[in-house]
Design a protein around this nucleic acid. Structure first.
Lengths: 150, 150
DNA sequence: TCGTACAAGTTGACATGTCAATCACGTGGA
DNA sequence: TCCACGTGATTGACATGTCAACTTGTACGA
């Protein structure tokens, strides 16, 4: 039996939903960039390193933490290394491994970015929704996630 | 008075929400790409041109229709022109203007992409949600949109 | 008519992402 | 031992996005 196609209303909700979430991501990213000079990707990497013991991680563990493919991470680390936010070294136990270390400059950039970033998330996301809407957003995300990972 | 920062729970919802919507966009885009060889951007441009009278639009009207900056559109049109999906000409009334026209190949690619794309939207979005969740998604998107545009 | 300001598009430089190829190292069996 | 294979990571080629500079054409007041 052929599946029914989405109705006009369903398509309209799809477009509004996907475009709004994209605009939200862009808006939070733009605030982060102008407040701190960091991109959302930079922030995620710095956050993962900040929480790691000794503020250092194997490259593949870092990829796991931020949910990126290794190739993407490698390119991004190259850019962050050029800007002095992280440094790369060799793993002691496995010579293939790259140990990524948070530099003092990277730690400082992360420290200064955090509060404004959390404020932006509150203003543009949390405060934009009622408690019921926030719970609904979590519920919707959970349902979508389950379909995506099944 | 300083604003309160998001709670741990609120931050968790933020991450889950923003990452899931990103994964959803990526999944629908990947299906479109493998089904038809078109990117989401290509599809949006072809859709707007398909609905235009004579299947042609001024570049700035097209930018309005897809919601892109002119620069982004210009780069994208260059790639689509190389692939034969659209062609560029001069506007008759305003020599500054570029008239973007859907080629037969572009129209055919769009025609063949549509049904599988709508099916993907139904499977990964509409069918992933209960009717109540779908309504809640629209409600949440509306609330976020109002904050973003205010 | 001139000249200035504005509008439409394009372009170049660069950041970000994906995919496939490649390189370096570790492991396990012949 | 040694070599074929798997894993960790990097690289190159290219698609996609943003920003600022530039080109060309239009409009409008002095």
């Amino acid at each position: 039996m052929p599946r029914r196609l989405p109705t006009r209303d369903e398509l309209h909700i799809w477009r509004e939903f996907i475009e709004t979430t994209e605009a939200l991501r862009a808006a939070v990213g733009a605030r982060l960039q102008s407040d701190s000079g960091l991109s959302a990707g930079d922030y995620g990497v710095l956050l993962a390193l900040s929480e790691a013991p000794d503020q250092r991680l194997r490259s593949s563990d870092l990829a796991l933490a931020v949910g990126w493919e290794r190739s993407r991470l490698s390119h991004h680390l190259g850019r962050m290394e050029r800007r002095g936010l992280i440094s790369r070294g060799r793993a002691t136990d496995d010579n293939r491994g790259a140990l990524i270390t948070l530099t003092p400059a990277g730690a400082a950039a992360f420290r200064e970015a955090t509060a404004p970033h959390l404020r932006a998330i509150r203003e543009l996301f949390v405060d934009a929704l009622t408690p019921e809407q926030l719970a609904a957003a979590a519920d919707v995300a959970g349902a979508l996630r389950r379909t995506l990972t099944s």
